[in-house]
Each structure stands twice: as C-alpha cells, then as structure tokens.
Amino acid sequence: MNFFRLTADLMHLLSIFVLLLKIQKTRSCSGISFKTQLLYAVVFVTRYLDLLKWISLYNTLMKIFFIASSIYILYLMKIKFRATYDPSQDTFRIEFLLGACLLLALVFNYTFTFIEVLWTFSIYLEAVAILPQLFMLSRTGEAETITTHYLFALGAYRGLYLLNWIWRFYTEHHIDWIVWVAGAIQTALYSDFFYIYYKKVLHGQKFELP
C-alpha cells in the first residue's frame, strides 16, 4: 500500500458516497446513467470472484463494499426512485461495450482460465463503463453540481491509480500491462470533463457544456 493507492481507493469510496447522497437528498436519480451503474455492478461482480481468497481485511472489506453498494445503487435507480429515471436520456448502446470487452478479454489475457478471463473482462469494462454517463452528460449539456462532484471523485480515483503504478514500478518493479493500458484509457476519457469541471464548477458556476 502506498499514499497514491490509498488516496485513490478513498476517492473511489467518496465517489460512491457522493452518488448515494445525491440520490437520497434529491430523492431522484435524474442525470445519472443507469447503464453506467449497471456496468459497474458487472465490473465488481466479475472482478471479485476471488472474494474468498484472503489478501487483507482491507481488501476483503472494500470488495464487499463495492459489490454491495453497486447493487444497492441499481436497486435505488430501478425500484425505489424508478419514476425519476428517464431512459430516453440514457441511450448509449452498452451491448457493444460488453461484446468488445469480452472479445478483448478472450484474446488479450495473462492466462486463459475462466476466472482470469472474467477478471480481464472486468478491467476492460471498467475502462469504458463511464461512457454512457459521459454520453448522457453531453446530450443534456448540463449537470447538477453534486453529480459533477461524483464524476470528479471517480476520475480522480483513476488518475491517482496511474501515479500508484508509477510508484510501484520504481519501488517494487510491479508490472501489469493489462491494468496499465486500460487504466490510462479510462483516465483519458475524463480529460474533457476535468477541464470543464475546473473551468466552471471550481469557480462556482453551473456545469454546462460550451
């Protein structure tokens, strides 16, 4: 564990709490892509098939939290606050993402086993899971400030993981190409968002696309 990775994980936790706060406080999931949340649930379930394999208490608790919270968010969006979800805004075709990620995972993996291919699939899928949300944002052209805080925390988590990998490469010669390439792409997807977040939200303005 190092500073970057711990901070990244805490940002990830924070992003989920901000999302839950947004839904509970406004009693609405408007502006949130159900498809992105669905993809995250798929990511966590397929990645943490090794849940029973002991690494540390921290590792196990975080895995349980990520799986449970992602499914809870699906429940909030699909059942509790269903009326506030507008599917006509959430039109990104996730079938292509799922198909492409599965294909890539079958071809580019470390070991061709069931668990390993699903783990690789989850890494690729996480890289692009935010696309339906960003697509929704670009369609509506604006977002509630709290939603942008959620996205910022999520993007910051990814950015900090890049720093963590650089740190780990120099301190422990840790190498993981699959995770690095996917993580770099994932972080790059946030660059436009970061720019507008910095220009607008941090200066007290509403998030609006130019």
Partner: peptide, 10 residues
Amino acid sequence: EAAAKNKDEL
C-alpha cells in the same frame, strides 16, 4: 506473469 498472480489492487 507475476502480475497475474498477485492481484492485491482493487
């Protein structure tokens, strides 16, 4: 690959 066996990251 050592990386594939040591999945300590989340």
